[in-house]
Protein backbone atom coordinates (compact mmCIF):
# COMPACT_ATOMS: atom_id res chain seq x y z
CA UNK A 1 0.00 0.00 0.00
CA UNK A 2 1.75 3.03 -1.22
CA UNK A 3 1.80 6.06 0.93
CA UNK A 4 3.16 9.45 -0.05
CA UNK A 5 5.43 11.23 2.32
CA UNK A 6 6.90 14.66 1.88
CA UNK A 7 9.90 15.29 4.04
CA UNK A 8 12.69 17.73 4.64
CA UNK A 9 16.19 16.86 5.71
CA UNK A 10 18.28 18.95 8.07
CA UNK A 11 21.94 18.77 8.94
CA UNK A 12 21.64 19.46 12.62
CA UNK A 13 19.26 18.53 15.40
CA UNK A 14 18.84 22.18 16.34
CA UNK A 15 17.68 23.00 12.84
CA UNK A 16 15.20 20.19 13.05
CA UNK A 17 13.91 21.35 16.41
CA UNK A 18 13.37 24.85 15.06
CA UNK A 19 11.49 23.42 12.10
CA UNK A 20 9.32 21.28 14.36
CA UNK A 21 8.49 24.38 16.38
CA UNK A 22 7.58 26.19 13.22
CA UNK A 23 5.40 23.34 12.02
CA UNK A 24 3.61 23.35 15.34
CA UNK A 25 3.04 27.09 15.04
CA UNK A 26 1.73 26.66 11.53
CA UNK A 27 -0.64 24.00 12.79
CA UNK A 28 0.75 21.36 10.48
CA UNK A 29 0.28 17.76 11.39
CA UNK A 30 3.71 16.16 11.64
CA UNK A 31 3.67 12.58 10.41
CA UNK A 32 6.97 11.53 11.92
CA UNK A 33 10.44 12.66 12.74
CA UNK A 34 13.54 10.58 12.14
CA UNK A 35 16.92 11.20 13.66
CA UNK A 36 20.28 9.39 13.73
CA UNK A 37 20.35 9.48 17.52
CA UNK A 38 17.92 10.32 20.30
CA UNK A 39 17.38 14.07 20.39
CA UNK A 40 16.47 15.37 23.81
CA UNK A 41 13.64 17.82 24.07
CA UNK A 42 12.00 16.60 20.91
CA UNK A 43 9.36 14.42 22.52
CA UNK A 44 7.30 17.21 24.09
CA UNK A 45 7.37 19.21 20.90
CA UNK A 46 5.96 16.24 19.03
CA UNK A 47 3.39 15.70 21.74
CA UNK A 48 4.67 12.21 22.47
CA UNK A 49 3.37 10.89 25.73
CA UNK A 50 5.88 9.41 28.12
CA UNK A 51 6.87 5.87 27.47
CA UNK A 52 5.02 3.38 29.62
CA UNK A 53 7.53 0.61 29.22
CA UNK A 54 8.37 0.73 32.89
CA UNK A 55 4.86 -0.47 33.72
CA UNK A 56 5.47 -3.55 31.61
CA UNK A 57 8.79 -3.98 33.38
CA UNK A 58 7.13 -3.78 36.77
CA UNK A 59 4.41 -6.27 35.89
CA UNK A 60 6.84 -8.78 34.44
CA UNK A 61 9.19 -8.26 37.36
CA UNK A 62 6.44 -9.04 39.84
CA UNK A 63 5.62 -12.15 37.85
CA UNK A 64 9.23 -13.21 38.21
CA UNK A 65 9.22 -12.51 41.93
CA UNK A 66 6.09 -14.54 42.49
CA UNK A 67 7.14 -17.38 40.22
CA UNK A 68 10.44 -17.79 42.01
CA UNK A 69 9.31 -17.28 45.56
CA UNK A 70 6.07 -19.20 45.42
CA UNK A 71 7.69 -21.88 43.29
CA UNK A 72 10.48 -22.51 45.78
CA UNK A 73 8.08 -22.29 48.67
CA UNK A 74 5.80 -24.88 47.13
CA UNK A 75 8.65 -27.18 46.17
CA UNK A 76 10.39 -27.07 49.52
CA UNK A 77 7.39 -27.09 51.82
CA UNK A 78 4.83 -29.12 49.90
CA UNK A 79 6.20 -31.02 46.97
CA UNK A 80 9.42 -32.46 48.31
CA UNK A 81 10.62 -31.05 51.61
CA UNK A 82 14.26 -31.72 52.36
CA UNK A 83 16.53 -30.37 55.04
CA UNK A 84 19.69 -28.79 53.80
CA UNK A 85 22.43 -27.85 56.18
CA UNK A 86 20.17 -27.85 59.20
CA UNK A 87 18.11 -25.04 57.80
CA UNK A 88 14.33 -25.10 57.96
CA UNK A 89 12.26 -26.09 54.96
CA UNK A 90 11.09 -22.60 54.37
CA UNK A 91 14.42 -20.75 54.43
CA UNK A 92 13.48 -17.27 53.31
CA UNK A 93 16.99 -15.79 53.27
CA UNK A 94 18.14 -18.58 51.01
CA UNK A 95 15.30 -17.94 48.57
CA UNK A 96 16.11 -14.29 48.08
CA UNK A 97 18.97 -14.56 45.58
CA UNK A 98 17.01 -16.68 43.12
CA UNK A 99 13.91 -14.57 43.63
CA UNK A 100 15.91 -11.49 42.77
CA UNK A 101 17.49 -13.06 39.69
CA UNK A 102 14.17 -14.21 38.28
CA UNK A 103 12.62 -10.81 38.94
CA UNK A 104 15.31 -9.18 36.85
CA UNK A 105 15.16 -11.86 34.20
CA UNK A 106 11.41 -11.69 33.76
CA UNK A 107 11.36 -7.90 33.80
CA UNK A 108 14.13 -7.62 31.23
CA UNK A 109 12.84 -10.18 28.79
CA UNK A 110 9.30 -8.93 29.17
CA UNK A 111 10.24 -5.33 28.53
CA UNK A 112 12.40 -6.13 25.54
CA UNK A 113 9.66 -8.21 23.99
CA UNK A 114 7.12 -5.46 24.62
CA UNK A 115 9.51 -2.88 23.21
CA UNK A 116 10.03 -4.67 19.91
CA UNK A 117 6.37 -5.58 19.63
CA UNK A 118 4.96 -2.10 20.15
CA UNK A 119 7.62 -0.57 17.91
CA UNK A 120 6.86 -3.11 15.22
CA UNK A 121 10.48 -4.17 15.09
CA UNK A 122 11.98 -7.61 14.98
CA UNK A 123 14.34 -9.93 13.18
CA UNK A 124 13.92 -9.58 9.44
CA UNK A 125 11.35 -6.81 9.64
CA UNK A 126 11.76 -4.34 6.79
CA UNK A 127 10.39 -0.88 7.38
CA UNK A 128 10.50 1.71 4.61
CA UNK A 129 13.51 3.98 4.94
CA UNK A 130 12.88 7.52 3.74
CA UNK A 131 16.52 8.32 3.23
CA UNK A 132 19.61 6.25 3.80
CA UNK A 133 21.38 9.13 5.46
CA UNK A 134 18.90 9.36 8.32
CA UNK A 135 20.90 6.77 10.20
CA UNK A 136 24.03 8.73 9.41
CA UNK A 137 23.76 12.48 9.77
CA UNK A 138 20.42 13.72 8.45
CA UNK A 139 17.48 14.80 10.56
CA UNK A 140 14.17 14.23 8.88
CA UNK A 141 10.84 15.99 9.35
CA UNK A 142 8.11 14.14 7.49
CA UNK A 143 4.51 14.99 6.60
CA UNK A 144 1.82 12.72 5.32
CA UNK A 145 1.20 13.66 1.67
CA UNK A 146 -1.26 10.94 0.88
CA UNK A 147 -3.98 12.01 -1.50
CA UNK A 148 -3.07 15.66 -1.28
CA UNK A 149 -3.96 17.98 -4.11
CA UNK A 150 -1.14 19.84 -5.80
CA UNK A 151 -1.91 23.02 -3.96
CA UNK A 152 -1.92 21.28 -0.62
CA UNK A 153 1.33 19.62 -1.49
CA UNK A 154 2.73 22.99 -2.39
CA UNK A 155 1.78 24.24 1.03
CA UNK A 156 3.96 21.59 2.66
CA UNK A 157 6.74 22.07 0.17
CA UNK A 158 6.74 25.79 0.71
CA UNK A 159 6.68 25.32 4.42
CA UNK A 160 9.68 23.00 4.37
CA UNK A 161 11.58 25.23 1.99
CA UNK A 162 10.74 28.14 4.18
CA UNK A 163 12.29 26.66 7.32
CA UNK A 164 15.73 27.85 8.18
CA UNK A 165 18.66 25.61 7.34
CA UNK A 166 16.62 23.25 5.23
CA UNK A 167 19.00 21.00 3.34
CA UNK A 168 16.76 18.98 1.06
CA UNK A 169 13.10 18.38 0.39
CA UNK A 170 11.82 15.16 -1.06
CA UNK A 171 8.61 13.46 -1.90
CA UNK A 172 8.59 9.75 -1.63
CA UNK A 173 6.13 6.96 -1.92
CA UNK A 174 6.55 4.15 0.52
Amino acid sequence: MAKDIIFGLYNDEEHLMAAVDKANEAGLDIWNVYTPFPVHGLDPKLGLSESRLHIAGFVFGMMGTLTAFLGMTWIFTRDWPIIFGGKPYWSVPAFIPITFELTVLFASIGMVVVFYTVCGLGPGVTNPVLDDRITDDKFCLAFDANGLSDSELDKYRDFLNGTRHIAEVHLKSI
Binding site: T35, P38, S51, L53, V104
Partner: peptide
Protein backbone atom coordinates in the same frame (compact mmCIF):
# COMPACT_ATOMS: atom_id res chain seq x y z
CA UNK B 1 22.11 -6.15 8.08
CA UNK B 2 18.48 -5.55 7.28
CA UNK B 3 17.65 -8.80 9.01
CA UNK B 4 19.71 -8.00 12.08
CA UNK B 5 18.77 -4.35 12.37
CA UNK B 6 15.14 -5.35 13.02
CA UNK B 7 13.72 -2.71 10.66
CA UNK B 8 14.98 0.23 12.68
CA UNK B 9 14.15 3.60 11.13
CA UNK B 10 15.10 6.15 13.76
CA UNK B 11 11.56 7.38 14.37
CA UNK B 12 11.19 9.72 17.32
CA UNK B 13 8.82 7.45 19.22
CA UNK B 14 11.16 4.51 18.76
CA UNK B 15 14.07 6.51 20.09
CA UNK B 16 11.99 7.56 23.05
CA UNK B 17 11.09 3.99 23.89
CA UNK B 18 14.62 2.86 23.17
CA UNK B 19 16.02 5.36 25.65
CA UNK B 20 13.43 4.42 28.23
CA UNK B 21 14.26 0.75 27.75
CA UNK B 22 18.00 1.41 28.02
CA UNK B 23 17.51 3.34 31.20
CA UNK B 24 15.33 0.72 32.86
CA UNK B 25 17.57 -2.10 31.73
CA UNK B 26 20.46 -0.12 33.18
CA UNK B 27 18.50 0.23 36.40
CA UNK B 28 17.93 -3.52 36.47
CA UNK B 29 21.45 -4.39 35.38
Amino acid sequence: YNFFSFGWTGAAKHWQRWESLSLILAGLA
